[in-house]
Design a protein around this nucleic acid. Structure first.
Ligand SMILES: [Mn+2]
Ligand SMILES: [Mn+2]
Ligand SMILES: [Mn+2]
Ligand SMILES: [Mn+2]
Lengths: 220, 220
DNA sequence: AAATAAAATTAGATTAATCTAAAAAATATT
DNA sequence: AATATTTTTTAGATTAATCTAATTTTATTT
C-alpha cells in the first residue's frame, strides 16, 4: 500500500463523505462541487485513484470507494478529528477556528505521532463538532442523533453535534448560546417557516430559524 | 509576500543553514548534497527563488539569502523547533525521533497556531537538541558553546547542545549516558586518535571517541 | 424516436518540481 | 598560456495536478 499524495487523500475523503460512509455511488460533478475544482480534474483523479484501487470507477457511471480506499479515508478523518480536539482542548482554539488548520494537519504521515496524540488527548471518541473519531482500525460509533427541526413540541434532548461546521454558523451558535452538551426543549414550532422556539438548559428561551434547527443535532 | 511551497521552504532552510545564518555565499553543489537532489534541480529552484527575491543569485557565483528569505527561513526553523519541543515534552517522543516528523509539521501554515503552540509550551528558548528557537521576529540567542573535543583536561562544563542530530548518534549518546544538562569534566585526552575520558555528573567515567567529542557541545 | 440538455470524459495547455545528458563557465594543473 | 577538470547551467523529458474547450455519453423532453 503506497503513500497517497495530499490531493489523493482529499479526493478520497470527499468521495467517502459524499457516499455516506462508502455506501452510495458518487458523481463526478458532486465531487467537483465539494472540492471546488472542475469536473475535468475530477475525472482525471478518479482514473488515477482507480489505478491504485482506491475506488471502483466505471466511466460515466460514477465511483464507489473501495475497502482499501475506505480504510485510507478513515485514517485521514481520524487524524483530522484528533487534531481538531487537540486544537480546542489544548491550544484553546474555538470550535469554529479549527477546521482549516486540521485540513493541513490531517496529511502529516506518522502512525506513531497519531497514536501518541491519541494517548495525549485521552482517546477522545468525538471531535469538537460532535463527529465520531475512528480508531486505528477505522471503527467508530455514531451517537444516535436527529436534527432539532424534527423534534416534536415539548420534546427534549441534548445537543450532540452540528451538521454544518462552517465558521459563520458556529459563531452564530456561540452568539445565541447553543453549544455541545446543552439541554434543549422545543417549546413551539412555526409551521409556516420552519422556525421554532426552544429552551436551553431549562432557562434560556430562544427563537431559532429553520436553518439552525436543521443543522443542530440532538440525542434521540 | 506570497506563500512559499514546501519545496521552496526547504531550499531556503538549506541555504540559511549552509550559509551560517545567512553570512556566506552558498554553492549549488553544497545545496544539492544537503538536500539530496541534483545540481540541475538546484539551479532551477535558485532561479525561481531569485525571482521571488528570496535569494540574491548570480549565475555561476552561488547564492546569498536575502533579508526577506532569512525572515522566511527563520519562521520555518521556529516552527520546526517548537514542534520538536512539543513532540518531546508533550507526546513523550525521544529526542532522536522528532526530526523527521518536525520536517513535515514545519510547513503547516497558520501564524495563530504557532503562537498558541508557543504559549502552550511556555515559550521555550531551545529545542530538544539545544538549538535556539527564534521568536516571532526571528530573534534568538545562542548559548555560548564549544565542542567537548576542544575542552582542556580538567576543564568542566554542561552539555548544552549536539552538533549532529542524526538518530543513530543521539541513540548512542542515550546508551552511554550523555544528555542535555549533564555535567562534564574532561579527565584525559588521547592525542593520537582524539578520543577522551570524561566524567559525567561527577560520577560516571566514560571513554568517548573523537566523533562524539566533536559533536557534543558544552558551555563555555 | 428525435431532439435537446446535462453530465462526464478527452484533448491539449500550463505550472511546479524533478531528472539525465549536453553545453558552458570557472577553476586547477601541467 | 594551454589544457584538463570541476562546477554550474541549459535543454529536453517526465509526473502530478490543475485548467479551458471540444467531444462523447447519458438523461430528459418534446
Ligand atoms: Mn473539520
Ligand atoms: Mn470536525
Ligand atoms: Mn530537527
Ligand atoms: Mn532540533
Amino acid at each position: 500500500m503506497k503513500i497517497l499524495s495530499f490531493a489523493e487523500e482529499n479526493y478520497l475523503k470527499a468521495v467517502y463523505h459524499l457516499s455516506n460512509a462508502g455506501e452510495l455511488d458518487v458523481t463526478t460533478n458532486s465531487i467537483a462541487e465539494e472540492m471546488d475544482t472542475k469536473a475535468a480534474s475530477v475525472s482525471d483523479m478518479l482514473r488515477r485513484l482507480s489505478e491504485k484501487e482506491m475506488v471502483v470507477y466505471k466511466k460515466y457511471q460514477g465511483v464507489k470507494i473501495s475497502e482499501k480506499g475506505k480504510t485510507a479515508a478513515l485514517q485521514v478523518i481520524r487524524k483530522h478529528r484528533l487534531w481538531e480536539v487537540f486544537l480546542v482542548e489544548k491550544l484553546k482554539f474555538n470550535w469554529d477556528q479549527v477546521h482549516e488548520i486540521a485540513e493541513q494537519l490531517e496529511h502529516i504521515k506518522s502512525p506513531l505521532l497519531i497514536q501518541r496524540l491519541d494517548d495525549f488527548l485521552g482517546h477522545p471518541k468525538f471531535d469538537p463538532h460532535g463527529d465520531p473519531i475512528p480508531d486505528e482500525n477505522g471503527l467508530f460509533k455514531e451517537k444516535p442523533q436527529v436534527p432539532l427541526a424534527e423534534v416534536e413540541v415539548s420534546g427534549d434532548g441534548i445537543v450532540v453535534a452540528v451538521k454544518d461546521t462552517n465558521s459563520m454558523f458556529l459563531q452564530h451558535l456561540d452568539r445565541i448560546g447553543i453549544y455541545l452538551g446543552a439541554k434543549t426543549k422545543v417549546t413551539e414550532k412555526v409551521e409556516f417557516d420552519g422556525s421554532m422556539e426552544i429552551l436551553i438548559d431549562g432557562k434560556n428561551k430562544l427563537f431559532i430559524s429553520k436553518e439552525v434547527a436543521e443543522n443542530v443535532l440532538v440525542t434521540h
